[in-house]
Simulated scan of single mutants.
Amino acid sequence: MSSPGFELPLRLLLAFRVLIDELHAELARQGHPDIRPMHGFVMQAIGPQGTTAVDLGRTLGVSKQAAGKTVDTLERIGYVERTPDPADTRRKVIRLTPYGMDALNRSARIFDDLRARWATELGEDRLNALESDLRRMTPANLWRLDTPGWFGNL
C-alpha cells in the first residue's frame, strides 16, 4: 500500500527539521547557542568573500531590508561584521567574523557526524541509495539559498 502523496514532502521536511534541530543543539553545546536555522542560509550566502546587503537579498530571494535585519542580528551576536567596500566607500561589505567561520566549520563536522549516525541506523547502502535517489529527483545545485524568500521572508 502506498502512502498518500502529501506525506512525501512532509517526511522530507521532517527529515530536514530533525537534522537541523540536532545540528543546532550540538552547535549550542559547542559554543554557538544564539545561532538559528535561518542564520545558516544567510552565512552561506555571505560566503568567504563577503557580500553587500543588496546582493545578499537577491541571493536569498528577500528584500534588502529583510536581509539587513538578519545581518543586524548576526552582527549583534558576533557572526558577521560590516566593513567599507574598498571599491566603493559608500557601500558596506558584510563579512563573516572568525566566530562565524567557526560556526560554519563546526556545522560541517556536525553534519558529517549526523550523516554517519544515519548510516549506522539505516545502513550505509540504504543511505547511499536514498542520497542517490534524491540527487536524481532534485536540481544539481545544492546551494540554492533562496529558500528564505520562497518561504515568505526572513
Rank of each mutant, 00 (worst) to 15 (best):
F111C: 12
L13T: 13
R58E: 15
R76C: 11
R29G: 05
L127I: 06
L74Q: 02
P4H: 09
D125H: 06
L154Y: 03
A116T: 10
A108G: 11
L134Q: 04
A140V: 13
I46P: 06
D133Y: 06
T147W: 13
D133I: 05
V80F: 02
A129Y: 06
Q65N: 14
A108S: 11
R126P: 09
R126W: 11
P33E: 03
R17K: 13
T52I: 05
F16Q: 14
M137Q: 09
R117H: 14
P86L: 03
L74S: 05
G78K: 00
R11E: 12
Y79Q: 08
L14M: 11
S2P: 15
G57S: 04
L142Y: 08
I94C: 04
N128E: 13
T52K: 02
R90Y: 02
S63D: 08
W143V: 10
G78Y: 00
V80S: 03
D34V: 02
Q49V: 11
L96S: 05
I110L: 05
L23W: 03
A108D: 12
K92H: 01
A129L: 15
Q49E: 13
P148D: 10
R144E: 15
T73K: 05
L10I: 09
P9S: 06
G40S: 14
E131C: 07
M101D: 12
L19D: 10
T51K: 01
I20C: 14
L19I: 14
T70N: 11
R91N: 06
W143D: 14
I94D: 05
R106L: 13
I94P: 01
T97Y: 00
H24L: 14
T70M: 09
M38Q: 07
D88R: 02
A28Y: 02
Y79E: 07
G123M: 13
A45L: 06
D112E: 11
Q65H: 07
S63H: 07
Y79K: 01
A116L: 14
G61I: 08
N153P: 07
V93E: 01
P86Q: 05
F6D: 12
R82N: 04
T120I: 11
A87R: 06
R126S: 15
P48Q: 12
F41C: 12
A116P: 07
F16L: 09
N153F: 03
P98I: 02
L96H: 01
A87S: 15
S107A: 13
V54D: 09
T83I: 06
S132V: 08
E26F: 03
P37W: 01
T147K: 09
V18L: 09
T51V: 03
V93Q: 01
D146L: 03
G50P: 01
S107K: 01
E7K: 02
W143S: 15
Y79I: 11
A129S: 13
G31W: 01
A129V: 08
T89V: 09
P84K: 04
L10M: 04
A15V: 09
D146K: 07
G47S: 11
S3P: 08
W150N: 14
